[in-house]
C-alpha cells in the first residue's frame, strides 16, 4: 500500500476537523474525494503533507510504510508526496521559473513542460502574483509535474477554471498520472497515485478515478464507484448521501 491512513483525528486551532479517518491508496490508484464545503477535505491534505497547524491528535499516516508523524514537510515531499494547492499564496520577487527549478531539482525538462501547458509567458512573472484563476491552476500543475510525486494531492484542480482550461489541466493530470514525464535523464514509471478533491466533478471527465469517497463533517462516510457518487450528488446533493447513509 502506498498510503495508509488509520483512525486519523486532526485538530486545527483546538477544534477537531477530521475524526477517525481511514483510507488506503495503492500504487497507481486514483481516488476522488467529494464533500460539501467545510467537510475537511483540504484539512486531510494539509495533515498528509504535514503543515504545522494541522495537529494529528490520534491515529497515524503511513506512506510507503513509513510513519509520517513528526516528519517535516520537506521530507514528506522528498519521500514522494506532492500537493496542488487550491488557493496558493502569491510570492513577490520569486519567479515561477525559479520555483519550478526548486521543485524539479533538475530532473525535469521545464521548457518542454512549459511549452505543452502554454505557460511560457508566466515563467518570468512573480509566482501567482496577479494570476487569473486558470493561470494559478496551470502554475500549480506545472509545479506538481516538476515535483513528480508518487502521490499527488490535487485540491480542486478545476475550481475557478473555464472549460478550455479544465481540459488543459485534465490533460496535464493525465500526463502526470499515466504517461510518465519528459525526463532529461530517465523515463519514470507511470505508477503514480492521486487523491483528487473535486467539488463539481468536471475534472473526472478527463481523469479516470478508480475509487470515490465522501467526506462529511470530518469523516469518510461513503466509499463507492466515483461516477456513482458523483451522479447522486449531482442529482440530489449531499443531503441524499446522508439519507442513503441513514438507510444503511
Amino acid at each position: 500500500m502506498l498510503l495508509q491512513i488509520r483512525d486519523l483525528t486532526v485538530e486545527v486551532a483546538g477544534r477537531d476537523v477530521l475524526h477517525d479517518v481511514n483510507l488506503d491508496i495503492g500504487p497507481g490508484e486514483i481516488h476522488a474525494l467529494f464533500g460539501p464545503n467545510g467537510a475537511g477535505k483540504t484539512s486531510l491534505f494539509m495533515a498528509i503533507i504535514g503543515l504545522e497547524d494541522y495537529k494529528v491528535r490520534k491515529g497515524r499516516i503511513l506512506f510507503k510504510g513509513k510513519d509520517l508523524s513528526g516528519m517535516p514537510v520537506y521530507e514528506r515531499v522528498k519521500l514522494g508526496i506532492g500537493l496542488f494547492f487550491q488557493r496558493p499564496p502569491a510570492i513577490r520577487g520569486l519567479k515561477l521559473r525559479q520555483l519550478l527549478e526548486i521543485c524539479c531539482r533538475e530532473k525535469v525538462d521545464i521548457d518542454k513542460l512549459v511549452f505543452e501547458l502554454a505557460m511560457a509567458d508566466f515563467l518570468d512573472r512573480d509566482v501567482n502574483y496577479g494570476f487569473s484563476g486558470g493561470e494559478v491552476r496551470r502554475a500549480e500543475l506545472l509545479q506538481i509535474l516538476a515535483l513528480q510525486p508518487d502521490l499527488a494531492l490535487l485540491d480542486e484542480p478545476e475550481s475557478g477554471v473555464d472549460l478550455e482550461n479544465i481540459a488543459l489541466v485534465g490533460r496535464g493530470i493525465n500526463r502526470l498520472l499515466e504517461r510518465g514525464m519528459p525526463c532529461k535523464d530517465r523515463e519514470t514509471r507511470a505508477q503514480r497515485s492521486a487523491i483528487i478533491i473535486s467539488h463539481t466533478g468536471y475534472i473526472l471527465d478527463y481523469v479516470d478515478a478508480d475509487k470515490g469517497h465522501v467526506l462529511y463533517n470530518g469523516t469518510i462516510v461513503c466509499s463507492e464507484e466515483p461516477r456513482k457518487i458523483l451522479e447522486t450528488i449531482r442529482k440530489y446533493g449531499y443531503e441524499e448521501c446522508m439519507r442513503c447513509l441513514r438507510r444503511t
Binding site: 504545522e52 517535516p72 514537510v73 520537506y74 515531499v77 496558493p88 510570492i91 520555483l99 526548486i102 509545479q143
Partner: peptide, 10 residues
Amino acid sequence: EYLMTRGLTY
C-alpha cells in the same frame, strides 16, 4: 509553508 511543500526546509 507553500515553499516547504516544494521541498524546501523552513
